[in-house]
Design a protein around this nucleic acid. Structure first.
Lengths: 128, 128
DNA sequence: CTTAAACCTTACCCTTGCAGTAAGGTCAAG
DNA sequence: CTTGACCTTACTGCAAGGGTAAGGTTTAAG
């Protein structure tokens, strides 16, 4: 398989696949005579794992941990469970922050004159 | 005022103040004989605006828009209101995404064996 | 047979919002 | 006189690739 083919099968871009190789997430593939990367199917589970966990908000470094667990036959499923739960907590923290900011903005907006004049209590409040 | 003084008054780092100058958010200040930047109080409202709106999730470019409105005596307060509301909508979009991801992760975790064995339906699901 | 499209390669710059560091100048206190 | 706390510019780095250049290859069509 050439790179565009694995990329498409995994739902990734060619650029991304080469990037994951550069940062060591996936092993360096064999090369054809012409220098083209030559993949076999064994890379697909890892690429799928990367694609899905990136989409689920994991950083590339966190993907690395997941891949190590995936590659480790002596892993405990509880370790994977733990990683997922940590991510859920991180997301909840982020949600709380966003909620906080949103409420602040809504409070600002509600005090706004919202008309064609230049007097603006939002700007007044933000520059104080 | 020297740079560390304005920075502290606005709750910013010296680095950040110089950065905002470089990207044109604040005007280039006068210089003392020794080359040190010399600020007067007029920069403080702008720095406060930057500090608060950055904390509220605005990008530096969005801060630029706010500053332009702040500097424009012919502004309409409705325009400021509009910017805030757009930001609120963006935050809500982000919240919805996070919620989506979180639910996905929770669903994964709930199906996990969560024990000392290596069989892991999370990894199975992510690599499929 | 030739050419153009569609691949592939490496390598470098761009993004965001600064922080860190180097290498140096300046200023006040002890 | 020296130490320490400031200040200056300038360069590098972070995340996670995207965009582009400049070139080699292959394949389908004319």
């Amino acid at each position: 398989m050439k790179i565009s083919e694995v990329a498409e099968k995994a739902g990734l871009t060619v650029k991304a696949v080469r990037y994951y190789e550069n940062v060591g997430l996936i092993p360096k593939p064999a090369r054809q005579q012409n220098g083209y990367r030559s993949y076999d199917d064994s890379v697909l589970p890892i690429l799928n794992l990367i694609h899905r966990s990136r989409a689920a908000g994991f950083s590339v470094d966190e993907c690395r941990e997941l891949i190590e667990l995936f590659n480790n036959p002596a892993r405990h499923s509880a370790d994977v469970h733990e990683l997922i739960c940590q991510k859920v907590e991180a997301i909840e923290k982020q949600q709380a922050q966003l909620e906080h900011i949103k409420e602040h903005l809504i409070a600002l907006a509600s005090r706004c004159e919202n008309n064609e004049k230049s007097t603006c209590s939002i700007l007044a409040s933000l520059t104080k």
